[in-house]
Design a protein around this nucleic acid. Structure first.
Lengths: 239, 239
DNA sequence: GCCTACCTGGCAGTGACTGCCAAGCATGCA
DNA sequence: TGCATGCTTGGCAGTCACTGCCAGGTAGGC
């Protein structure tokens, strides 16, 4: 986070990917186990004693690896919680790109959030992580930083829908930033309510509060109004 | 930033405030000078070599103080750029509170941004700082973290205007977060345009793009539409 | 069974940040 | 004017995240 991302190669899921196409070697499997163990240990300790109070040394010790190795897998302490950020970004951009033809920018972004949420193992898992992020200043800052980078990835895609003049650039930024803002408002409320309800429902409510579409009067700068009210809840899977 | 804010007492402008009501003692004046020198040195070095590449040791050396003293004045490296965050927060909350009766929540928030912007010495100064923040990952993250805390301060004020049910809580969050999102979009665009134009103009454009009021059809969840198009530009003063 | 390539752990170092302690100096009182 | 008081300062050592380097070990290919 601090400077660039030098230790990015050691990312967890790189295991079977890359040059070594198939055949998960013993090394790969061993590393996979170590990674799992580290992640579980970290999440447990963060939850028990708080993020700040947990040192890398402790996590490494309890996970049975050296600090050096831990830092090879995860470039920063933050990465121990956030998982692979790239995964979220690529999934979201792909989703927006997939919605290129249909609906307006808002619905594409909503779909992107929906697929991002589906990356979490379960709502409980998501809640635990969200809560930790919301309650820890440094984590929240780190998350927001990554979020901005994600916004920047999405910007050109949204921009392509709205136009390409100077003014449209600002408008595209505003649309992207606002959808993220509403997602934040939704997740903050969701955490506050201890995970009751559905984040996407809350997201829709937040966006409606902002864009004034609750009365059903769509005043969209692009086209169609919002999609269906809200699907049941995020599915499962993660990492 | 990392953990709490222990060295908060040493904040620059605390000089004449607090227990020692009037009579700026010699100590106060000396400290004031030191603070100015540190801030100027830091900003210069950050600008010349980048934020990350500039060490606290270097700033302290060139400003003629010890690292220890520097850290007593400014709790973190970030504070060397952002100035006194409290100042911004209190000014914004006061502004929103002052607009309690008139207009809707949106216009109150807009006024809050306007007064916050007036804290900058000059547009040039603001541009230099904004640019640094926008271009440095860690600074941006830090800024966003503080921003969220500011949003949380404003939340109850906005909430009081919209209602107090569960759903309204989420709506208030969305309104606050969206106005900040638009401010971000505006300032990002402003920086990108090398400071051409007025941030508040851009802010209005961003908000219009989101809320679809460019056509003049106000679909506000509360009441009145936005205020006058945009005042000339931020005035001067800072710190 | 050996050689190579990769992985691991340890070590030392950097940079931000903090607590502690002693020395210095302005301030208030005599 | 002189002295005690108390705030301030700087130095030092220590913590924690994080990195480069190097040696030792083990899986994998031959």
């Amino acid at each position: 986070m601090t400077q660039g991302t030098p230790a990015e190669q050691g990312t967890p899921d790189r295991a079977t990917a890359g040059k070594r196409t198939a055949a998960p070697t013993l090394w790969d499997r061993t590393r996979q186990l170590a990674v799992q163990e580290i992640l579980r240990t970290a999440l447990r300790l963060f939850d028990e004693q708080g993020y700040e109070a947990t040192t890398i040394a402790q996590i490494a010790r309890e996970a049975g690896v050296s600090q050096r190795t831990l830092f090879r897998y995860f470039g920063t302490k933050e990465d121990l919680l956030g998982g692979n950020q790239e995964e979220f970004v690529t999934l979201m951009t792909e989703t927006v790109r997939a919605h290129a033809g249909e609906g307006d920018a808002w619905s594409a972004l909503r779909a992107a959030f929906e697929s991002a949420l589906s990356l979490h193992e379960s709502p409980e898992d998501a809640l635990q992580r969200f809560r930790l992020v919301h309650r820890t200043d440094s984590l929240r800052a780190g998350y927001l930083g990554k979020r901005v980078r994600c916004q920047e990835e999405l910007l050109p895609l949204v921009e392509a829908r709205l136009g390409s003049s100077r003014a449209d650039r600002a408008r595209a930024r505003a649309v992207v930033a606002t959808s993220f803002a509403c997602f934040d408002a939704a997740s903050a409320t969701w955490v506050e309510n201890d995970g009751r309800g559905d984040i996407l429902d809350l997201y829709d409510q937040c966006l409606a509060a902002v864009r004034g579409e609750e009365a059903g009067n769509g005043v969209s700068p692009s086209a169609a109004p919002l999609p269906s009210p809200s699907p049941p809840r995020p599915s499962t899977r993660r990492r």
